[in-house]
Amino acid sequence: MTRSEQGRHRERHDPHWVEWLTGIVSALLVAGLLGWIGWEAFTREATPPDLTIAVLTTEKTGNGYRVAFDIHNAATTTAASVTVIGRLMDGDRVIEENHIVFDYVAAESKSTGAILFRNEPAGRRVDIRAAGYTDP
């Protein structure tokens, strides 16, 4: 408990045991957090962004086709302004090319997005790749 008087508060000298229990649990949580972060700080090496793309679904939309994909950054550094280029290929010929930009793909994380094509992707090759990024 805290006693308030004249705008000042004074902490009780003989607190309830719950206060100590909460305090000790919190101390363990904070120590665990700092310990974990500290351990990561010592053991984790900074690697440049390593981006891989996996196509999830291809669906028909009102005015074309949507190819949804996720982009995974396996490295320990975040990539910013990640440009992804999607090509619809028929053999060696490029039928359609679109690109999108992800603001961020966080370290060891994935983001999802989609590329919209006007032509039918079925029976053709869909080639989606990351074209570049900046450091945040």
């Binding site: 000042r8 508060h9 004074r10 902490e11 000298h13 206060e19 909460t22 305090g23």
Partner: peptide
């Protein structure tokens, strides 16, 4: 907030 003189500082820190 203030502590009673006999209370060590870490009491309030933990609680």
């Amino acid at each position: 907030h203030e502590l009673s003189p006999e209370t060590p500082w870490w009491h309030a820190f933990v609680r």
